[in-house]
């Protein structure tokens, strides 16, 4: 393709719109938060413990019909014990032995999975000794063999029981995708009400907006499912057939 083709394409679009030359539309994209976004940001920053407990309640209601296994843990040891139990109870789908894939993440470090689990734990980092593409391939092979993938969600939207994951070093997208069981842990203060709050936060919050959506932002609502055969709902189409969500309450 040449730049000229692109110019012709866009000129053609402009002609269809009745416009002669390239234009700027300054008001199309927000330069600063709207009054609506400001209200949302305000609401998020002032959220009390009581309000968070209400969000957990809403999350429980949303999660149940979606076949999400929701666990509320009061401390990190309880959360680790939960994962230990899941790993002990479930059987691997794609390999003979049990291995677990996990993100490199401060919250997951605190779980100390290698100590908590009988199964070997693979952290989703490419081997620095190998070339980029080769390292990535090896890493994906490892994750594909794992029967559980453990991630820590950036946020969780209570109204729809939606997990929000961003792509970062050590936090492979395939950990929430290839293993048969996805376990996501999220701290209670990372609960948001809905998509509107998430988008306001990612666009305008000083701590969040630099990273923004990252290269790949994934919203996950429930385990993988399909209704393509006679409109009958079946779980476990291509992605995880089970989704466990562990909400870690603050030590107050």
């Amino acid at each position: 393709m040449t730049a000229a083709d692109e110019k012709i394409f866009l000129a053609n679009v402009r002609r269809a719109l009745g416009i002669d030359s390239p234009r700027r539309a300054p008001r199309l994209f927000a330069e600063s938060p709207s009054a609506y976004s400001k209200r949302l940001l305000e609401k998020i920053s002032r959220r009390t413990g009581e309000e968070t407990r209400k969000l957990i309640h809403r999350l429980k209601e949303a999660a149940a019909p979606l076949n999400i296994d929701l666990h509320v843990a009061s401390d990190i040891q309880t959360a680790a014990a939960l994962i230990t139990r899941i790993a002990a109870d479930k059987s691997p789908e794609w390999a003979d032995r049990k291995t677990v894939a996990a993100w490199r993440h401060p919250l997951i470090e605190r779980l100390d999975l290698p100590a908590a689990l009988d199964a070997p734990v693979f952290f989703s980092e490419p081997d620095p000794g190998l070339s980029g593409e080769e390292a990535r391939r090896r890493m994906i092979e490892q994750i594909a063999k794992s029967f559980i993938g453990v991630t820590a969600a950036d946020f969780c939207l209570a109204d729809t029981a939606t997990l929000v994951l961003r792509s970062r070093p050590g936090q492979a997208r395939s950990v929430s995708l290839l293993p048969s069981i996805h376990v996501a842990i999220v701290e209670a203060d990372r609960l948001l009400a809905d998509l509107a709050e998430l988008y306001a936060l990612l666009s305008w919050d000083p701590e969040q907006k630099t990273e923004g959506l990252s290269t790949c932002l994934t919203l996950i609502t429930g385990p993988s499912k399909t209704a393509d055969i006679e409109a009958t709902l079946v779980h476990g189409a291509h992605g995880p057939r089970e989704l466990h969500l562990v909400v870690l309450e603050q030590n107050s």
Partner: peptide, 14 residues
Amino acid sequence: NMAGYVSYIGGPRQ
């Protein structure tokens, strides 16, 4: 209320 998976993709692996 919400689709199972929604991904925002902005380019290749960074």
